[in-house]
Amino acid sequence: MATAATTAGSLRGRSWWAKHGPGMVVWFFLIIGTVLSLLPYVWMVFASFKDNNEIFSATIRFLPEQWRFENYVLAWTREPVARGILNSFIMAAGETAGNMVFAVLTAYAFARLRFRGRDFVFLLVLGTMMIPTQVTMIPQFILMRWLGWVNTYQGLIVPRMLTAFAIFLMRQFFLTIPFELEEAARIDGCGRLRCLISVLLPLTGPALATLAIFTFTQSWNEFFWPLIVVSSPEMRTIQLVISALRGQEMIEWGVLLAAVTISAIPTGILYVALQRYFVQGIVMSGIKG
C-alpha cells in the first residue's frame, strides 16, 4: 500500500506515509506478536479434540476433522483430572487464605507501628526473598516427614502459607494510607486490631485482590513442591496429573491436551476477569527493584 501511494505522487505519498506509516508499523508488529502469543493456545484447544493420528499428521491443520468431545470425558472420568483440579483448588485456596491473613497482620506492624527492632526484622524478612526455594526444599521435606505431613494437604499448604513477597506487597500499600485516618479512630478508643479491620482493611481492597490473585495463580501453577510432597495418585495436583499423563508409555495426546486445557481454565478466567490486578501486582513488585 505504501509503495502504491509513493508511485502515485511522491509528495502526496510521503505525507501519507508520514501520517500513517508509524501507526502501520506498530500495527504490523502488534499483529505478529498477537499471533505468536495466541497460536499455541489455539492449537492446544483444537488439538484437544483430535486423536493421535490427526495431531501427528504431515500437514498442519488447526481445526479437527472430527470433534472428539470424548477426550474431555476421558480426561475427566478415566484420568484423575477431576481429583487433580479439586486438590489444586484446596492447595491454592489454603495458600491464598493463609497469605492474606498473616501478611496483613505482619505488614500492619511493619507499616503502621513504631518500635525498636522493627526495621531489622523487616530486613530479615526481605532477605528471605534472596533464598532460592530449592535450597530449603530438602530440609522442608524432612520437616514434613517429622511432622507426618508428607502426602497431606497441610504438607502442601503450610510451608507456602506466608511469603516475604506478600508481606512486602501489603506493607507498601499500608504505607500509602494516611496516618491521620487511624489516629482519629484511635482517639475514639479503637483498639489496634479493630483499627486494622474496620479502618484500614476497607481501604485495602485493590492490594488484597492483587495479593489473592497472585498467590492463587502461583500456587495453582506450582510444580516442584507438590512433586516432592505428594506420594499417592489421589493427592496429585492438576499439574502433577498432567505430568504423569505425559510420562506414560503410550501418550494419548488428545486426552493429555484436554487435561491441559481444563487446567488452564480457572487461572484463565481469573486473568480475563481481573487483568487489572495482575498488572498492578507486577508494577508493585517492580518497586522493590
Binding site: 502469543s37 495466541l38 493456545y41 492449537w43 495453582w220 510444580f223 498432567i242 491436551l257 487446567s263
Partner: peptide, 15 residues
Amino acid sequence: FYSPAVTSVVAISVV
C-alpha cells in the same frame, strides 16, 4: 502478550 505468564509451565511444556 502477558497471558503466557499466567499459564503454568507444565501446560506450556506440553504444548
